[in-house]
Design a protein around this nucleic acid. Structure first.
Lengths: 233, 233
DNA sequence: CGTGCGTTTGAGAGGGGTCAAGTTGGGTGG
DNA sequence: CCACCCAACTTGACCCCTCTCAAACGCACG
């Protein structure tokens, strides 16, 4: 195997974005030898809640939604994972089945890192654990904030919120449209409401001059306005 | 200082309930020498969101609510911490200000462990980090579940949910009333609704024979019924 | 050229928020 | 011990938000 191959973990830049950056040369080599790179097409499932994971998935390119099915039969999107993020680590750490399902929102490139490599580093590399710990601490804060927003903000505010989130995290294309295009249904699943209400909110925003739309693509025309809405002014 | 004193960490049973159980003898001694035991009365504040914490609080007795103020001016209770739980560790790990405020729900006994001791063990004791990591992983799962419930369940269901939670986590007294007594306002803040609606829901439950009340105390008379409500049957 | 999925709009019912007005109950000072 | 007071609790009324069912529309794909 060619050690200079681009697909080798030692040479992967993505690593710098997450806790895997703390891994040592030998660990990376071991992972590189056993990891599996995979291409996932838009809409395909990566893993499902309740499934026992035997490794983690490092997102090399593309975006995935992490959702959970509620008892009322509706999906709730809890998190959106993109380049550099590692999916499934929580389950492996807690030694539990996956709590969320992961589905690709567009074409993705993933690296699957087997459980053994992950737990090996987990038990032997203190810096790696530290990095992971810090990562989880951050995720926990985010989750707490989401709880507050879900409980206290209206659908209007939450829709404004996700538009702002998509803008700051994924940016816009040349025409100013949000780069990450979600279906109305997915937006509704993030916001935690019915698709119809989500659509109505968007048309209302359009009427008020906050956004423009072209098909399912959305352009933010008044960020200030959305910000104020989000903050409840 | 008497090493057999009950207040010494080495002899503290509470420790077994959390990640501190992984600490070594010397670490415990060091902590014991610098820790501060504190008594907090019902309603008193332990720390506030935005505050820089210089240590963690180990709950030796009593119960605390961890809440966050939403922009609309209402408090959202995110978590209820009781005997054996450690408050503030997330902030210290992430090296951030506190994201939540902690207020005592009844009289409490706390041990304050200075930042230095905590971070010292954090950087030197792999077992301790592992335990912490697992703990955070579990909290993260809980938080994700709360997000789904907040987004997808009705107020009725969420009120039923917290009653069941109080029952399983804090039990009942001799008369069958829930041991942990919350004000209607606190219940509303957990559920994420207005106090009035919370009260109305409770009176409805009473009319339906699911619960009985005496003052602010609540007795569950039909656990099955609440379970079914919670699960959306 | 249909067929199916995603999107959009309408209308009605019920849930939930809010304001305002009582009521209770526990604590305090006389 | 009683009277008082304040905070917590309770209830009513009203209106807006949100959910749901239903139907029409567009677009892509076979």
């Amino acid at each position: 195997m060619n050690p200079h191959e681009e697909s080798r973990c030692e040479n992967c830049i993505i690593r710098e974005l997450n806790a895997l950056r703390s891994l040592k040369k030998e660990e990376l080599k071991a992972i590189s030898d056993s990891k599996v790179s995979r291409t996932i097409k838009k809409g395909e499932s990566i893993f499902k809640e309740g499934e026992k994971l035997n490794g983690v998935f490092c997102v090399r390119d593309g975006v995935s939604k992490l959702s959970k099915l509620s008892e009322n039969g509706k999906d709730q999107i809890v998190k959106i994972a993109s380049k550099g993020e590692v999916m499934g680590q929580r389950s492996l750490i807690a030694e539990e089945a996956a709590n969320l399902s992961a589905v690709a929102l567009n074409d993705m490139q993933l690296c699957f890192i087997p459980k053994e490599n992950f737990t090996e580093s987990l038990s032997k590399n203190p810096e790696f654990i530290q990095a992971l710990l810090k990562n989880m601490a951050h995720e926990l804060k985010m989750a707490d904030d989401v709880i507050v927003n879900m409980a206290q903000k209206t659908v209007n505010q939450r829709v404004a919120g996700i538009l702002l989130y998509l803008d700051t995290h994924f940016g816009t294309d040349a025409d100013g449209y949000l780069s990450l295009v979600l279906s109305r249904n997915d937006i509704a699943d993030v916001v935690g409401t019915a698709t119809e209400l989500c659509i109505r909110t968007l048309t209302k925003f359009k009427k008020e001059g906050l956004i423009e739309t072209e098909g399912k693509r959305i352009k933010i025309s008044d960020r200030e306005g959305l910000d104020q809405l989000w903050e409840g002014v």
